[in-house]
Design a protein around this nucleic acid. Sequence first.
RNA 1: GCCUCCGUAGCUCAGUGGAUGAGAGCAGCGGGUUUCUACCCCGUCGGUCGCAGGUUCGAGUCCUGCCGGGGGCGCCA
Length: 591
Amino acid sequence: MVRVRAACIGHNRWRMSDPLASLSTLLEPLFANFNGGVPADPTVRPSDRADAQINGALALAKRLGENPRDLAQQVLESGILTDVAADAEVAGPGFINVTFSSSFLESQLAAVVKDKRLGVAIAAEPKIVVVDYSAPNVAKEMHVGHLRSTVIGDSLVRLHEFLGHTVIRENHIGDWGRPFGMLIEHLLDLGEDVVSDGLSQGDLDGFYKQANTKFKDSEEFQDRARDRVVLLQGGDEATLVLWRRLVEMSNSYFQRVYTKLDVLLTDDDLAGESRYQPLMEGVYARLDSAGLLREDAGAMVVFPPGFKNRDGAPLPMIAKSQTGAFMYATSDLACVVDRVERLDADLMLYVIGTPQAQHLQMVFEVCRMAGWLVEPTKAVHVGFGNVLGADRKMMRSRAGDSVKLADLLDEAVERAEVAIAEKNPDIGHEERLVVANMVGIGALKYSDLSTERIKDYVFDWDRMLAFEGNTGPYLQYAHARICSIFRRARIDRASVRSEHIILNQPQERGLAMRLLAYPSAIATTLDSFSPHKLCTYVYELASDFSSFYQECPILKSPEPMRTSRLALADFTAQVLEHSLGLLGITAPEQM
RNA sequence: GCCUCCGUAGCUCAGUGGAUGAGAGCAGCGGGUUUCUACCCCGUCGGUCGCAGGUUCGAGUCCUGCCGGGGGCGCCA
């Protein structure tokens, strides 16, 4: 006979809203008991054949040398499931299929609908999280690659903030380095006012290309550019004034794009490369005193173990070049040190493309060697793949250039406006513009976020703006549709909130189960810093609602069903709006 | 050459070591609803989960080796 001590079941964990998580928590003491006091995972999983299946008996029986079906039977006979399950049976080699009782689901739901956090608990251990993302280059156009970094980073910021972590956004803009010699000289040649006009209109690429062309064609210009770099790095005040002008002009442009994109980045989040220049000397000295520096081919380097070059020889991280200049790796070291020692970061996320993977691994490894990056402090490369065109190659404009992000945003909004005008002619002109912004930008963001970030993804206007399938507009529409029910019936949503929800129809149960799984969806999303997992959840939620909407009349139902369904719809809208919000997507009330 | 990531339906993509029912959307075909806005539902078509081994009670999932594709591999950032 198995005895379970009630004290083992933590009250708070028991109240976790996800029935699967609750079930797992409920079973843990029993499984530990079976296992001689050692914890054993009950392995509770969603199931197509029931609400949940418990698979842990198989692994445990194997370990104990027992029959898995017998062990599963013991779980049933313990009576532990009687409060939560309407039905439970041993199936196959030793699975337990569990169908939750409606009263159990209703009670879980009753607790959650009153909760402003929609059932999602604040993190038990709040951390300081630094998110490094976006990172455009001064005097260069933002392109579609910056979209990915910006959108993924923005979502990770919102997710961590929601869980109660202290999030520090850092926009590591490219505002330092050799190109600034030529850029400043080009600025002087054209005159500040001319440049200011051009840059404020977003012609950053033109400016950069002109400077580059001049640099290639003119030796005189090259000399001036080189001298100017020396002046810049030497701290010449007149040069710094010009440099600041360039940075400011670019930043104001970036900020306009961020506003249009509806992301959280502001000027306060700027943490460009220039900030770390004064820190590099100190970092270099600390590498030296730690005994990590080696001289190699005239450069000062660190050899992190495990990295090899094309000849199979150890691959160095170059701290200082032959000419005595610090390298970008040194700058990134300084950056880590700054984040760990000044900002007191527990977790650093680098939302940067996958081509930087090896570089970042080397930087992190050198930081560990130097003792700057010590567990439990973590640095994680949140890498992402390329955006591809229909030809499955890197997306290019017709002219063969990389696509300007600003143009992409404008086109998204224009296309959304056309679609809305066509599908909802009744909507007012001003309202249409507002909604077109939400839908266009939302569609763009969602298509970027909804696939596994590490993979390349294929950009397709028609697919991302479709009202069917796993798209932003479909999810926004599910939300708008719920708002529409209340609007038409002239019912205040707040009036049904926290009303008791009755779960009779399978569609109601399914929807309720999904709503209760919101905290788990967020947890698995953050486990791997993968917003697409939250996207999948929101899509499934919207699909579940559509089924419910189809099968369960709301306004025409008699009481108490009518109020119950209104409450269920209202809570669904809340979770839809909130989860889309965590993805950085706004949910309009009509579209 | 070495390292690394990717390879799942015609297309775009999901898939926590769990059931010889591997899913979704789109596209195609056939039907049903057409009511609270564009939806939704049912059926059908479509898969050697790149290939071959291995580990495991159980592998799309873990390991090894191949094949194909992308990226990286010293003084740019």
